[in-house]
Write a protein that binds this DNA or RNA. Structure first.
Lengths: 311, 311
DNA sequence: ACTAGATATACTCTAGTTGAGCAATACCCT
DNA sequence: AGGGTATTGCTCAACTAGAGTATATCTAGT
């Protein structure tokens, strides 16, 4: 009989909190990881139902928008999970990653669960001016070192980090992480090689197993999706000001957009309508409150007016 | 002990032949289906390796570009496959779909395998003027019937088939297929309900299991990818004329693009370079031959100059 | 009450992109 | 030589996206 296969479900549950995207994490001996549940075909008709079930079972959260990310089946990735629920050492653990969005980073209801900021684990993905990552100072030099005279490596580096033509593409988060992994900069690289886990400063703390890879996949996917699906509304409250919306977008994208043009695009898109009320805010002219337009287009994303010159 | 899980691998192997995209299919009692192989964790380190292995094992083809599509785990979908390799009736068959591209629709080396045109199974996806699908005449009226006064259904219909604002979006092939399935128009709908399998004329022949859904996923994914990754070169010969390239693009997209603007975009993209030679062609001015530019950008797709007015 | 500071909102300007079409060119065939 | 056919070069207008300027409306502080 062939080796058994166990299906694991990993959820990247994301919500905004304090102007930054956060992800629901669980504390294990080896460090922070994504919530994980084994898929039981006897109990669940679909992966998605199984995933919702184990997340709401383990935390007090209700999931809204959910989407499948990728299925990870590489040998070797299961080792850190072998101790889990019914998995035996000889089993192959295949994991189906899901992205789930929630408008609030609510109470998790577990002492070993917590919301962790995306950019704690991916400092280099936050290009907003106030966030100072060590990209230019530490990471890029190390990557250039690693690439050396190798043409292929150089091309991948240029593409992933936007050093040449199309520039920085926010959705290439996975490319960037994998490059850093290959170059041995992130602590996971040493850890998986069985060495003492020491990463380059500024590359963020490791997560268990390949969970940081899954999170990078989620970040890239969500960023890409913003452009052609109105997913951003899954992450904000019912009523919001255009600045709220812009802050949410910028938090996800990791860079700033042009304020006036952003508003112009949003208002022209037909995605939102004014509630009539205004926000009670501190300082400044009060902003009009908006909500999602009921009959608005669902097949349209946001135009994201990039800033070319640095602010 | 919980029910066992078997991982199946499904490959959508696509190549262009005679100006139309084709997919490698295998003949079974129930009809045409995608090549399928069980994943054996003892033998293969990754899904992709397993997939390459079973395809080259079952046919004489070498796969080039490969990408994971989606993992299908719904209960019920395995029934038609229960007879397969080691699968027992009580097992849950989960299938990981892959898309693979090949520049030539070569000999399959199997008598029960054949290349089938995408648009034989998806007539409505070919909007090129010479292809006459029954979309307007038969499918849309039936869908409108099905939607009736239901707002949500109506909105999905408008979006999927581009009846309102953003218009026809070629990458929504899966949305369209699923809508037609729900509306009971495709033969699979009746078949899966246990009734005699009769589909609306013009909805194409069924494929085994949910393989037409997997194919629709592949079509949508590939169409979307054209815009931001130079995948089209995986489908044409080493040397090609710009018209060859355009024909390939139009075949995948299922609609025509503006010739002069297409050339302008391609030439400006830096993706190709002239070989210096010209094509020996029938009739007309001979076209310059191009090849992919070696140092060209890899993170860039094609601008696809849509035709607004019908030709 | 008035002012400074802060934010929201309304417009304008400009360069680049995109959809569209015209016209010239280069080959084959009869 | 001339018709047929396809390639190639070029122009134009409409639209889009990035950027900047100006004005409106609030709070907080004096």
């Amino acid at each position: 009989m062939s080796a058994r296969v166990v299906i694991g479900l990993n959820a990247v549950v994301t919500a905004l909190e304090g102007g930054d995207p956060h992800v629901l994490c669980v504390r294990r001996e080896e460090g922070w990881g994504l919530p994980y549940g084994a898929f039981d075909p006897a109990r669940h008709r679909t992966f998605e139902l199984g995933m919702r079930d184990f997340v709401t079972g383990q935390t007090a959260l209700q999931l809204g928008y959910v989407e499948q990310l990728y299925t990870f089946g590489d040998e070797g990735r299961e080792a850190p999970l072998a101790s889990f629920r019914g998995g035996e050492a000889s089993d192959r653990v295949v994991s189906v990653g899901y992205l789930a969005l929630s408008p609030v980073a609510g109470e998790t209801g577990r002492s070993d669960a917590a919301w962790r900021g995306w950019y704690e684990h991916f400092p280099w993905e936050d290009r907003r001016p106030y966030a100072r990552d060590g990209l230019e100072e530490a990471i890029l030099p190390a990557l250039r070192d690693w690439a050396g005279g190798d043409r292929a490596r150089r091309a991948r580096l240029d593409l992933a980090f936007g050093l040449t033509e199309p520039g920085w593409q926010e959705e290439r988060a996975l490319d960037r992480y994998e490059l850093m992994y290959e170059a041995g900069l992130v602590p996971e690289a040493a850890r998986d090689a069985g060495e003492a886990a020491e990463g380059l400063p500024g590359t963020g703390p490791a997560m268990t197993s390949d969970h940081r890879r899954i999170l990078a996949t989620a970040i890239g996917r969500l960023r890409g999706k913003l452009r052609y699906r109105p997913v951003i509304f899954e992450l904000v409250a019912e009523e919001f000001t255009l600045t709220d919306l812009q802050d949410a977008v910028e938090a996800i994208l990791g860079f700033c957009v042009h304020k006036q043009n952003f508003r112009r695009a949003i208002e022209a898109s037909g995605l939102v309508e004014k509630t009539g009320a205004v926000a009670a805010r501190t300082g400044g002219r009060p902003a009009a409150l908006y909500r999602r337009a009921p009959g608005g287009p669902s097949g349209v994303g946001l135009t994201l007016p990039r800033l070319r010159r640095e602010v």
